[in-house]
Write a protein that binds this DNA or RNA. Structure first.
Length: 621
DNA sequence: TGAGCTTGTCATCTC
DNA sequence: CAGAGATGACAAGCT
């Protein structure tokens, strides 16, 4: 009903405007200004445009989502990397490097033949080899497994890679070829087109995978040395590799590792190392040679590895330096500096004691395990004593901790393994690597501390924390990490299995409490920062919204003002055209135009102000 | 040398 | 009620 009325009055409005407009069509006022249908049309058009725009945005968002779905956020680097295939558990993940590499494969080689063309040529030239070595080079690289994946999937018994495999990622041809085959193989390799093609492919591969960014490469493969770039012409490499029947692989591990660098990071460093060794046992010499030892292990570790243990022990103990079996005292020797700078350390320890002025029996020996555990002579340290211990905590280690920061963190991560053996604890920690790792990440590195602002870690990892020093001083037979990160049940079990004196128990509980609280504080701060960031974002969006509304308001005000002005102009013009019977114009001060509810327009005499005011005084509305 | 930032620790509260 | 986590406050160390 109301709508009907509105419609009706609107129609009458328009009629009135039509009349007025027709009366003075050349006044300059455009009819569109009053035409509600026209405005409705405009509105509809605008709406349609908006809809289209929204559709377009939605489509773009969908596409972006689809793209992101194929990518995975690397939480460490913040980069998006291609999501590994569902069978990633069996196959090494495809790294971005490999993606680049594969992308390179599918590219045309530019000034020469494409790789596909090479393959085509091969297929035409050597139809026999096609059947015997079907996988050498005749599949298109587009469907090939990435070179590195192939490498990693190879069993140790598999022969070294053929040149074609090196370049294309295909499995190697049979290692023992028949003379005919070998000849054909050599001929094949000597084909200039193939050389060119392989060289280009190899260069592509090397360019994309050989010289990774040192920082990123190091981050991904902490233990890997950086090899000098391979400068030899690819083809000479290939031909040397081709002498596989002599079983002397001339290509060094450097080339192999560099060539397949892209895949290595996807495998745990030690695994990759073992895999390499298994794949090419003859490479051991290279790996254990000078060039590597200096890079993999500190001299002290080298000595341990090379001098004191049999090969098997070397495998077990030196394969990853962090797995060196240790006693509880060795737990604190995880910092490599300990073995080398022990004299320095003792000096600093002396310094502590002499500085402290507190009687802790004068020498570091006073804190010897025997005494503190059984004698109970060091029952608890006062805070000041603890502070004394804190004052110069292993500055000599910082150099080594810088050098071995990455390995040292790994040391920490695995430190509990041998210890659990030591304590007879079932290997529960192995089942909970995430727990320990997560705790440690937070504990040691503050890796994801939200407000570090890319500053380097100020406390170097090699430096013993206060609690570590205290634990060492009281000869606590567990690592601080264990104390902090073990689940409560395991922790209690561990405590019950060891006869700890009161001071040790108190310290262990304190360490656990402090450690937990430290992590909690870090989480709390992280949350706080995230909240702040979130609120800032919200604030920004609210400000945007406010700005938008303000600008809309001002636009509307402006538009309204303009409409009023036009209406006023129109009104005056219409009014000025009205004439009485005598042809005189009406005075706008005496009359006004008014519209009744039924749409009729009347010329109404104005009520005099005095009268009006009286009236309003008499009967206020 | 002081300001500002980060981090560890303690006390207290809540679950 | 004990224990774990959350959080404010403070202090120390670092830039």
């Amino acid at each position: 009903m109301m709508e009907m009325e509105v419609m009706h009055s609107t129609q009458q409005d328009m009629d009135l405007i039509d009349i007025l407009w027709n009366q003075d069509i050349d006044l300059g006022a455009r009819r569109e200004v009053f035409d509600i249908h026209h405005r409705q049309k405009e509105h509809a058009l605008q709406k349609q445009l908006q809809l289209e725009e929204e559709k377009r945005l939605h489509l773009m968002r969908e596409q972006e989502k689809a793209l992101l779905a194929e990518l995975q956020l690397d939480e460490e680097t913040g980069e998006y990397i291609p999501r590994p295939p569902p069978s990633a558990a069996l196959q090494p993940a495809v790294t971005p490097l490999e993606v680049t590499q594969n992308a390179g494969f599918t590219q045309e080689t530019g000034d020469g033949m494409s790789f596909d063309e090479c393959l085509q040529l091969l297929a035409e030239t050597f139809p026999v080899e096609q059947t015997q070595t079907p996988s050498v080079c005749l599949e298109t690289p587009a469907v090939s497994v990435p070179a590195s994946s192939t490498m990693m999937m190879m069993s140790p018994e598999q022969p070294a890679l053929s040149p074609a495999a090196l370049s294309s990622g295909q499995p190697a041809p049979p290692q023992r070829m028949s003379p005919d085959l070998e000849e054909a193989w050599m001929e094949l390799l000597s084909l200039p087109e193939l050389q060119q093609c392989l060289n280009m492919q190899m260069e592509d591969t090397l360019q994309t995978t050989k010289y990774p960014d040192p920082a990123s490469a190091e981050a991904q493969t902490p233990s890997y040395p950086s090899y000098p770039p391979v400068q030899a012409p690819i083809f000479s490499q290939l031909t040397s590799i081709n002498n596989v029947e002599t079983n002397s692989l001339n290509v060094g591990p450097a080339e192999l590792m560099n060539t397949f660098d892209g895949a290595v990071p996807s495998m745990p460093p030690s695994d990759a190392f073992r895999q390499l060794k298994a794949d090419a046992p003859q490479l051991d010499a290279s790996f254990s040679g000078e060039g590597f030892d200096g890079v993999f292990y500190p001299p002290a570790e080298q000595d341990k590895c090379s001098g004191q243990h049999s090969q098997g022990e070397n495998e077990r103990m030196c394969d990853s330096p962090n797995k060196v079996a240790f006693t509880h005292m060795d737990l604190y020797s995880l910092s490599p500096g300990d073995s080398i700078h022990s004299s320095k350390r003792s000096l600093t320890a002396d310094h502590h004691d002499s500085d402290s002025g507190v009687s802790t029996s004068g020498s570091p020996n006073a804190r010897s395990p025997g005494r503190s555990v059984h004698g109970g002579g060091s029952l608890g340290y006062s805070d000041s004593e603890m502070e004394e211990m804190d004052q110069n905590p292993g500055s000599a280690e910082s150099h080594y901790s810088d050098m071995f920061s990455l390995n040292f963190e790994l040391d920490h991560l695995t430190a509990s393994e041998p210890l659990s053996e030591l304590t007879g604890q079932p290997q529960q920690q192995e089942k909970k690597p995430e727990h320990g790792a997560a705790g440690l990440a937070e504990e040691s590195g503050q890796d994801d501390a939200p407000f570090t602002k890319d500053k380097p870690k100020r406390r170097s990892n090699g430096r013993l924390t206060r609690d570590e020093q205290r634990a060492k001083a009281l000869d606590i037979p567990f690592t601080v990490d264990m104390i902090i990160n073990l689940p409560v049940d395991d922790f209690n079990e561990l405590m019950s299995k060891h006869q700890l004196n009161e001071a040790q128990l108190a310290l262990v509980r304190d360490i656990r409490r402090r450690g937990k609280n430290k992590v909690a504080a870090q989480n709390c701060r992280k949350r706080k920062m995230e909240n702040i960031v979130g609120l800032e974002g919200e604030l920004d969006s609210l400000k945007d919204e406010r700005d938008r509304l303000l600008s809309e308001k001002s636009k509307n005000t402006k538009s309204l003002r303009e409409m009023k002005r036009q209406l006023n102009t129109l009104y005056l013009e219409v009014f000025s055209m009205l004439r009485d019977e005598k042809g005189n114009s009406y005075s706008s001060s005496d009359y006004s135009l008014q519209q009744s509810t039924d749409g009729s327009v009347f010329l109404v005499p104005r009520i005099k102000k005095t009268f009006k005011s009286e009236e309003s005084h008499l009967s206020p509305l």
